[in-house]
Simulated scan of single mutants.
Amino acid sequence: MPETTIPATPTTRSTPPPSALWGRALTVFAWLSFLSETIIIGTGGAVRLTGSGLGCTEWPLCTPESLVPIVEVQGIHGMIEFGNRLMTGVVGIIALVVVLLVLRLFSGRRALITTLWYAVGGIAAAAVAYAIASPFHIPAFPVASAVLLLAVIAAAVHAVRTTPARRDLVLLSWLTLIGVVAQALVGGITVLTGLNPFIVGFHYTSSLLLVCITAAFLVRLKTAPGPRERAVPAWFAAVTHVTGLALAVTIVFGVLTTGSGPHSGDADVLRHGFDATVLAHVHSWPGYILAALVLFLTVAAWVLRLEPRRWLLVLVIAILVQVGVGVWQAREGLPPVLVGIHMVLASLSAATYTVVVLHLKRSIPVAP
């Protein structure tokens, strides 16, 4: 009896395979991860710039008796601080979904089950650590959070080592989740230390790095796997990395300048003790060097028609706007709105630079 062939119907032709659906979901949540990491820099800046850093005096509770702020006691400052804490939960959920989608696509169901066991073990270990620390009057919740962080790191190491393909995406997704968990812990330490300016600065810098990691994930998600080769001349790559150093120095001095200025997060918090006026000038020097380097790279890339030329154009625009906002806020006496815009633009500039660096190489076509 001859084999019966079932003709393809319009429905069967138009229905994408499950892997394509999972891939689309990963793309959507990867973009949500990038956007949420950028937004939380804005909400964290709002906490600091409105003097709401101690709007919730405790952590993880907002007050010794309540998880949420008491409006009659803490007012708008408590609401702003608690809103930023809620945003941390949103960022964490999105980062977790990205990890699970990556494992589903590239590691399979067994990896998901293993990750679940790591989660159960980490929660149990954190509960034990909390129970042990409490009778000795040790800050129990930070200890439990640190134990949970170690469990997440262990799960990430296992996932990266056992994934057969796209370890770059697995690593980047786990780094984001680890960073979010660590940021929650650092945020709690920031409150418990009374807004120590160095810890606050570290908190912001870590958030900026997470924006860069999520941007890198988006680029690698659209990049073909396999070996890569340099797509630009060696001198161009070297100048690009020097530009990255100038960007890092500019951001560090910007963080120190903000920590020494009027926006420390609370009216009663002590600053670094540095002269904010001097730091503002020191912060501007590497900023101008950065702008000149980016402008040079952009012109060279368009003349030579190099791979990262379009993203360099985006970067030069971002840097010029950032310089303009920086000069404007200095002349206007550091109004909170301009300082907040300056903070968010710094993270977007760093993310754009990350994209530029990833375009210094291209995939090598592999014969089937």
Results as ranks from 00 to 15, higher is better:
Val200Asp: 09
Glu3Gln: 01
Val269Arg: 12
Val147Asn: 05
Ile189Met: 10
Arg161Cys: 06
Ala165Met: 08
Ala248Asp: 04
His272Arg: 12
Thr38Met: 14
Arg166Phe: 00
Ala276Trp: 07
Gly44Arg: 05
Thr12Tyr: 11
Leu148Ala: 15
Pro7Met: 14
Pro139Val: 00
Val339Cys: 12
Val180Tyr: 04
Cys212Tyr: 05
Ser14Arg: 14
Thr214Asp: 06
Ile213Ala: 10
Trp31Phe: 12
Phe136Met: 13
Asp268Cys: 03
Ser207Met: 04
Ile213Asn: 03
Leu112Trp: 02
Leu256Gln: 09
Leu295Thr: 15
Ala318Thr: 08
Phe136Leu: 15
Ala146Asp: 05
Leu86Val: 11
Ile132Thr: 04
Ala367Pro: 00
Gly326Arg: 09
Gly55Asn: 01
Arg104Cys: 08
Ile289Thr: 10
Leu67Ala: 11
Val219Asp: 08
Leu297Lys: 07
Tyr130Arg: 12
Cys212Leu: 13
Ser284Cys: 07
Leu247Glu: 04
Leu297Tyr: 07
Gly179Tyr: 06
Gly78Ser: 04
Ala165Val: 14
Met1Gln: 05
Arg161Asp: 07
Ile199Gly: 02
His283Gln: 11
Arg309Leu: 10
Ala351Lys: 06
Ile39Pro: 07
Ala151Lys: 05
His203Leu: 08
Arg362Lys: 09
Pro336Ala: 15
Leu209Pro: 00
Val339Ile: 12
Ala25Pro: 03
Glu332Tyr: 12
Ala301Asp: 09
Ile70Ser: 10
Tyr353Val: 10
Ala246Cys: 13
Ser19Lys: 12
His272Asp: 12
Leu116Gln: 00
Val152Cys: 09
Arg331Thr: 13
Ala231Lys: 00
Thr214Ala: 14
Ser207Ile: 00
Thr15Val: 15
Tyr118Val: 00
Gln183Ser: 09
His283Thr: 03
